[in-house]
Design a protein around this nucleic acid. Sequence first.
DNA 1: CCGCAGAATGTTAACGCTAACATCTCAGGA
DNA 2: TCCTGAGATGTTAGCGTTAACATTCTGCGG
Lengths: 337, 337
Amino acid sequence: MARETAEGKQASLTDVAALAGVSHMTVSRVINGTGPVRAETRVRVNTAIEQLDYRPNSVARALVTGRSGTLGVVALEVNLYGPASTLSGIEHAAREAGYATTITSISRPGRSSIADAVERLRRQAVEGIVVIAPHVTAGRALEAAPGDMPLVAVGGGEEAPVPVISVDQYDGARRATEHLLGLGHKTVWHVAGPEDWLEGLDRERGWRETLERHGARVPPVIRGDWSARSGYAAGRSLVGEKGLDAVFVANDQMALGFLRACTEAGVNVPGEMRVVGFDDVPEAAYYTPPLTTVRQDFVEVGRRTFDLLRRRMNGGEERARDLVVPELIVRESTGIS
Amino acid sequence: MARETAEGKQASLTDVAALAGVSHMTVSRVINGTGPVRAETRVRVNTAIEQLDYRPNSVARALVTGRSGTLGVVALEVNLYGPASTLSGIEHAAREAGYATTITSISRPGRSSIADAVERLRRQAVEGIVVIAPHVTAGRALEAAPGDMPLVAVGGGEEAPVPVISVDQYDGARRATEHLLGLGHKTVWHVAGPEDWLEGLDRERGWRETLERHGARVPPVIRGDWSARSGYAAGRSLVGEKGLDAVFVANDQMALGFLRACTEAGVNVPGEMRVVGFDDVPEAAYYTPPLTTVRQDFVEVGRRTFDLLRRRMNGGEERARDLVVPELIVRESTGIS
DNA sequence: CCGCAGAATGTTAACGCTAACATCTCAGGA
DNA sequence: TCCTGAGATGTTAGCGTTAACATTCTGCGG
């Protein structure tokens, strides 16, 4: 079986039709299950399809139907744990719904780079676009987004001009901060993410307002870039600070760096310093000490993102901001030891 | 500017042609730069293009040219650091060359799932396929791969039936093992990857043969699943073993788990135990202690993979196996402290 | 002032598919 | 016997683009 036409070219509907002795439309009907076909004919057609190893040409189909069956994802830094997991969730949901996923990444966020990426995808005839770029500039770039293309964002802020699926960063930060306050600390310090990341800003706001709500002093913020290196640097400059015995670090990688700095400085965690991270990367449970952190369900975010996008592709107009609730995972870095 | 046609539908070549008062072919020539066009005409056409916010329909173009400008990537576990970085490298190189990248992931590797994924991409009319699935089953699945579709694999073994780009795992393992032997250890233990991962097998072979070459005893192998959890489990069961004071762990995550187990058991690293990992994830420098490891340049692998694929898409027939040389990064986990 | 090369443009026919409508076949009731 | 209608199939016309060839303009040498 699986013989191809003599020239080695892909067989077309017409080839199959000729071999089966029917019209190309009958073949089309067999393939798509549209319209009635006599059982005997169906068998003949299917045999011909197998003999020629025929596969439908999705490009031709897309041209005539106007639907490419493809969605596009614009991603920033796909090798970060969060974005990669989200992408994975989106791709999975899309695949189950019969959509292919085209990605295009951007090295540095910015109005034009995001707009370029969207334009590239649009040229690729995607039916909808997901932007994974939780950046303040991303929000602005999306304002200029074309109105005729369904587009949703992951992790955008409240003011985003497009529908957004996001983990509730604010609430996660609140939980982390209250957990530390609940352990009896006078206040909680914060190693924040970059200024232009919405998620970082939300976490920072959640931390700050929680402190204020509890009447705690708000210490100065140290800012990192999400990397362990920057967390380490923050730790080096912070350790020894007066009244510093509890820190909420804006992600797990930076928390790891912070822990490292504590270790080097001979500061015992959690004895003299308690640390909470954010994300719950799979390694967090094996840090020294195991890290208390806020778990984000990225795969769920990806799933919901696709669902929302699909509703929009089908003409839905909802602008809601859908929040996934995070969960605090308590480990030794805030335990009693 | 950027006014669309009254009905809100995308403008086509014909619409532009009508507005500019030329034939659609002239517009096509202006867009693609094929054939001569008078400067004045070009201006008129470009104006019309802008007025209508015209963008070429890549689907129609793909239908007539037979080239979709898209390549497909089959990936397993995209949220692992290595695959994600490789994907990123491929996508970057592809984008620079004007190709779009469609991904499809598979949850568990196997003959049929990989074949399915390839078939899905083929239906999406990709021009070439990259398989990132360094699995023994992947190799077998690729034997059945269609001959008319350019296909290359990342990280396959020597016996793979398709061209392969890979980091030289064997050499990396050799370096790691010799580094430990060079520090005066009688032998080196090994926490290996899963049995069905080619990379794991190559690392294991590199380790074993290096020991044999140096006349060292070859201790039994403990096998993990790449996760920190499994590395921890390996550590728990291994620590205390007689003559165990140097371990080569097959990746950094497992090494982290192993370090954790040592810490819990009160075994000092590097004082009583020396540990080497593999990958050099960005966090490795901030583990406790900072991890000596073998760096893989995944982005380079991605780049070379795309280059190879492109050569194949242009009709090249090379079957060479291209190896990227890894580098040993020495840190405290094998230092003197 | 003609003719002719080359530049500039136009016309036609695919590419492989689906939508829409047209035709054919046959059973069953008038 | 003829008509009717539904089931089964066929025909035609695009979708928006490029390839290939045809035609129309230029300007310039003879």
